[in-house]
Write a protein that binds this DNA or RNA. Sequence first.
DNA 1: GGGCTTAATGTTGACGTGACTTTAAGGTGA
DNA 2: TCACCTTAAAGTCACGTCAACATTAAGCCC
Lengths: 230, 230
Amino acid sequence: MTVSSSIDQRVSLAVSTVVFALRPHPESGLMTLWLPLVRRIREPYEGMWALPGGPLEADEDLAASAQHTLERTTGLAPNYLEQLYAFGRVDRSPDDRVVSIVYWALVRQDEVARAVDGENVEWFVADDLPPLAFDHAQIVDYALARLRAKITYTPIAHAFLPPEFTLADLRAVHEAVLRTTLDPANFRRQALATKTLVPTGTCLTGTSHRPPALYRFEAGAASPAPEERR
Amino acid sequence: MTVSSSIDQRVSLAVSTVVFALRPHPESGLMTLWLPLVRRIREPYEGMWALPGGPLEADEDLAASAQHTLERTTGLAPNYLEQLYAFGRVDRSPDDRVVSIVYWALVRQDEVARAVDGENVEWFVADDLPPLAFDHAQIVDYALARLRAKITYTPIAHAFLPPEFTLADLRAVHEAVLRTTLDPANFRRQALATKTLVPTGTCLTGTSHRPPALYRFEAGAASPAPEERR
DNA sequence: GGGCTTAATGTTGACGTGACTTTAAGGTGA
DNA sequence: TCACCTTAAAGTCACGTCAACATTAAGCCC
């Protein structure tokens, strides 16, 4: 969506998304936060890495535009999508003025495997990114802070996991996102206290120890975004 | 800022603000949340009430644009300003498409007195509004939820008050915003626990009881918005 | 000074949470 | 078959927070 003001100045309205996923770190093997970046193929910042995004399509809602643009540029289908912030500083792009409405998203592990490292798409460790175009480093910082804050008081961790998971899986997600270790017993207590987990049986796969119970996430209101209400 | 897409469809990029202020209710006398609305003077929704706002100016940052537009339409200078959400549903305006970047603001009581009820501006009780244009009722609901959530875990209540205030004043703000009564003793404890209040002496005005202490708000980081950082 | 009002401080019990212990339920291997 | 390992799951305990309530302090008014 190109924007032309009543004067002669031009403004673009873009929609970008910060996508988070969990993958084992190639060296340490620890679960780590990764995010996909897209290499810019034109000026400004040609050749540098940037957030996936594109112009707002005239016939799409904002969230839908974020989702479609993400699908087109990276092939990813997020499991959670939420608006982050609208960035609009006059000088955030060297040429035309660009206002970016930025979303953040979580994708499941299997989704990551489905679409790794395409032509101009590559995954990076969220806390160790290359130099980014525009103010995208600042945007990622803010998205990271939001994710880490929100996972502590909202059950969104399940968006990283398949529909059925063990409490150990869920705890591993929290530990990876927050980069800490959590006491298994206490984590269990407060995870079950949320009432959003329903037991669905016992894990059948033969692990060489007591088999854990499986849980499913029970959709609880969770304060929807203002424009997503029905 | 009028936006014309690469196709022939037109899109406007607007900036609006939900402004909150405290005033005694004319009937009950209780402190109540009020907000200023502007009467629309052209189609669509001509004659209805709407949030103060206007097109994004090409040479202004988003927050600055919100502030200037607010000054121009209502004469108000907010004491606190924060981005709320970007609303962009395709059908939120009957004619052209409008994407609104909405801010919310708090103004002091004396500011309210300075600029009450101009030509096309009128104050309404926040929980009892007339029918609003566009999706503005939904926007106000969301802003109210944010204000009530944020006042419980962030010291923003002082934005309603003059620089010096008593703990009773501060508590009255919380009670008015949350529409509850709070235990004075417990409120005092957790207000002082935040470490953002510094005592500045004792109230001198002769009230017919023990004179309260005065406090001033000590600026504590308070997680700035991503674009406002230095 | 007695009585009123509000300010400010204290006290108590319920609850949530972190650190830790104990029991349960599997598999593995001598 | 039976120690022995590993993780799951439940239990214990001390500590801090907080709501509810009680007590003392400090003014003014009559």
